[in-house]
Design a protein around this nucleic acid. Structure first.
Length: 267
DNA sequence: GTTGAGCGTT
């Protein structure tokens, strides 16, 4: 992601990781590269980003090829003003797998992975760690916003809370249900189209014409699609939306049986 | 559009 075009960790066997804290949320690896590259050979720079928003979390990892250069960078860049903020550069204490490392140098992951397999399972702790971290140290927008929203909603709509039961349920499972819901929605926007009508009508195919009829009626603006799709997108296809084209079920039926006597009498 | 303790990805 935040690498120089490479995917995943390139090489961490002989690299020293430096933890850069207190950097601005807009600072990118490209901005830190020239700063750190000046003091040594930077192998890779990685900036953790939020899973939902995708924005920087405020810290970055700079991998140096040599420890002396990394140490020099720490001594030189630690306390440096970057983008109007004083950054904190120090050796990483933990490796990518939350393992202890010595002076920024990552211990051979292959060996430890072979020796410790059942002692601990640091790979599945991803979500758990995230949830725990967010509750403990996430005082920025994420948790703050939720807290503020929750407080506001409770403070204000506390009396009106009984008006909607599903809302309270939604609030309860907002912790991770929201993420899951979003993930599913993003992953399969198509299912939304199928799920919505399917939920209301157990048998949507019973009356296909009804669906077509409801579509234009429901949308406040006939030019805009309820799903947010641009009308130009369809027009761009080259063919205007024909009535039979809109109903996939009606199309094959007409196509399948053009004329029974046609094939018989024509030939 | 905001924020500010901390330790990481294909």
């Amino acid at each position: 992601m935040s690498h120089f075009g490479r995917s995943g960790p390139p090489d961490i066997s002989d690299t020293y990781s430096l933890l850069v804290l207190n950097i601005t949320f807009r600072t990118t690896a490209d901005d830190l590269f020239p700063l750190f590259d000046k003091y040594g050979k930077v192998v890779d720079i990685f900036i953790p980003k939020d899973r939902r928003t995708g924005e920087s979390r405020g810290f970055a990892f700079v991998r140096y090829k040599y420890a002396d250069e990394a140490q020099k960078a720490v001594d030189r860049l630690d306390g440096r003003m970057v983008d109007g903020r004083e950054i904190t550069v120090q050796f990483a204490k933990y490796g990518p797998n939350a393992e202890r490392i010595h002076k920024g140098r990552i211990i051979e992951t292959a060996q430890r992975s072979r020796h410790r397999s059942r002692s601990r399972s640091p790979r599945k702790r991803y979500r758990d760690d995230r949830d725990r971290d967010y509750r403990k140290r996430s005082r920025s927008r994420s948790y703050d916003r939720y807290e503020r929203d929750k407080h506001r909603g409770r403070d204000k709509d506390y009396h009106h809370r009984s008006r909607s039961r599903s809302t309270s349920l939604d609030y309860k499972g907002r912790g991770r249900a929201r993420y899951d819901d979003e993930h599913h929605s993003r992953s399969r926007s198509r299912s939304v189209d199928s799920r919505s009508p399917a939920r209301r009508s157990p048998s949507p195919r019973k009356s296909p014409s009804l669906q077509r009829s409801t579509s234009p009626q429901r949308s406040t603006s006939p030019r805009k699609s309820p799903r947010g799709e641009s009308p130009a997108n369809r027009s761009r296809d080259g063919r205007s939306p024909s009535p039979r084209s809109v109903s996939p079920r009606g199309r094959p039926e007409v196509s399948r049986s053009p004329s029974p006597r046609n094939s018989n009498g024509d030939e």
